[in-house]
Design a protein around this nucleic acid. Sequence first.
DNA 1: TGCCAAGACCTGACATTAAG
DNA 2: CTTAATGTCAGGTCTTGGCA
Length: 281
Amino acid sequence: MSHPRQHFPFATYEYKRSDPCVTPHDCTQYHFYYIHSGQCDYDQGEHSVRWGRGDMIITNGITPYNPKEEPGWDCVQTRFSFDPQLASVFDPYFCTDSPLKPFIELRNHRIRLSEEQIADCENILQRINHFYEEEEKAFYNRFLMAFYDLLMFISNLSREAMENSPRISAEKERNVQKMIAFIENYYMEDVTLEQMEAELHMSKYYLTRMFREMTGMTIFDYLRHRRIKQAKLLFYYRKDSTVTDVCYQVGYNNLAHFSRVFKKQVGMSPDQYRREQSALS
DNA sequence: TGCCAAGACCTGACATTAAG
DNA sequence: CTTAATGTCAGGTCTTGGCA
């Protein structure tokens, strides 16, 4: 029987793993890495980075980190990929700063923890894992609180770096962020490159190239990804939704097409997925 | 940074089938 | 009967190599 969290639409939590991440990079999600022990090498764009014990890495996902799967891989790490929406439940508690501010402002950032911070961090990660693994729904709220704790931990450690970080990101990255923002606003409608061209005042040819260069995926790959992710969320939260409802809500005009895309991306048909989500509650 | 052209791929329409 | 999955096809859009 599959674990209920396997299809949990908001987050993937991999605790104390000694293997490199094999799931494809998802630039729609924020990523967190923590190295418990050992060392590992990652490619980040044109650069290579080495992480070791006590390193905590946060990234907004736009520029992916790819593990170098060399024989030298000797590392125990926790990986946490989550949808920014996961933090939206905390919004009412905030007046000013988003709990995701370090991810947004620092984009890709490593923090080397002190021994005291290592103890704190590992304690939080262990708690998150405990609640993540629990099947009972009551634990979900405790999972969220532990997640909130982690975000606050990250925010405290990132304060100085955020004050010193350049306010304006690289031109290309800013444009990619604009494209992503555009998709976020309009993915439930028809989206065309012409619209983006008009919005960003840049040629569609250049936009598609820039997007691929920065994210490793094409604009429409991203759009499909975003729509299917939203479909999964709708199935998760509104158990009474029909496949047809969800299909139109996420921007598809054709059920057959939606069904095909969903199956290709998720590995099961929308109806199958919907039934699994219903069975969980 | 932008354009063109060609091929790849996506999308939507429609038909058919299956399950409840 | 309704809902959903799957197959086929035509038309349209996206992606990308090559070039300026």
